[in-house]
Nucleic acid binder design. Structure first.
Length: 274
DNA sequence: AGTAAACTCCGGAAGC
DNA sequence: TGCTTCCGGAGTTTAC
């Protein structure tokens, strides 16, 4: 559920809350969600100082002292936030790190466990799942590079969702962007003309930036790091609106499968490929 | 070789 | 009330 705009808001909150923080005791670390280094998290993290918090696509990267990097992927239901040390431990909290001298903790919680945390200082990267791919961040991709990627003869939605090439597009914003551009999700990217590609590139940037500004989309149970709701779900034109009238032409929106994901389209505004 | 679809992980929500 | 089904981010596997 958390896509690029939601992750960007999480990163902005962490940047403030982790500014100059030093990790204390690791109070809890569920083995199954920790990957990369096989050594105990306590040994790897204690006394490390937070240098920088950033994001590539949906992947969060926390650079620590001693060349240690902590990558966090939120998957479907992950939450990463600094909370007061005394707060009750929410169910499915898998990692809990004290922040030295701050009466606060960095906590990672993930109900469905599709997310995870990777520790990497270059010395041992052999435990658990591989770090999910993150190509060039979609908001950092210029039009020339975008045109190059759009030459692939793949279904446009599957291509946009593939994090290896362009990182950051998820199901919600993909449907929103394709609806706004009037492009059918099953159309081959390589059949888009010069103008289509330009409009698509602009639209992706416009929608993602607007969603970041709005604090993301709160659908299902998503909340920001400070438990606030996003507001972008009010601007959704397609996602979650199957069976309801198209906001542009009134036609009933349809649900189909594209790139293996549930997808909502307007059959009139987004004409099917032959 | 490159693309696409099916399967896997998991647990809450929705449906029966 | 309690069971079954659905759903998805991303890796892996299988089939074109």
């Amino acid at each position: 559920m958390p896509e690029l705009p939601e992750v960007e808001n999480v990163v902005r909150a962490l940047r403030q809350d982790l500014q100059g923080a030093r990790f204390g005791r690791v109070l809890r670390s569920r083995r199954q969600i920790m990957h990369g280094d096989r050594r105990p998290p306590q040994a790897l993290l204690r006394n490390k100082v937070v240098r920088e918090v950033s994001r590539v696509g949906k992947r969060i990267e926390i650079r620590l002292s001693g060349a240690m990097r902590m990558y966090v992927h939120l998957g479907m239901t992950g939450q990463l936030a600094v909370v007061p040390a005394g707060r009750d431990l929410a169910p499915h909290t898998h990692l809990c790190i004290d922040l030295a001298g701050r009466a606060a903790q960095l906590r990672f919680r993930d109900v469905r466990r599709f997310g995870g945390i990777w520790l990497d200082d270059g010395r041992d990267g052999r435990r658990g799942k591989p770090l999910p791919a993150a190509g060039e961040d979609i908001l950092a991709v210029g039009l020339p590079r975008f045109r190059q990627v759009m030459k692939h003869p793949r279904q446009i939605k599957a291509l946009l969702l593939d994090q290896h090439l362009l990182a950051g597009m998820g199901n919600i914003y993909c449907d929103e962007v394709l609806f706004r551009c009037g492009i059918h999700p099953l159309r081959k990217a390589s059949t888009l003309d010069h103008d289509d590609v330009k409009r698509l590139h602009q639209c992706i940037r416009r929608v993602l930036r607007a969603a970041i500004r709005a604090g993301g989309s709160s659908v299902r149970s998503y909340r920001g790091s400070r438990d606030e709701r996003g507001g972008y779900q009010r601007n959704h034109q397609a996602y979650g609106r199957q069976g309801r009238p198209c906001r542009r032409c009134g036609t009933r929106l349809l649900r189909l499968l594209a790139g293996g994901r549930g997808t909502v389209i307007c059959p009139r505004c987004q004409r099917a490929p032959k």
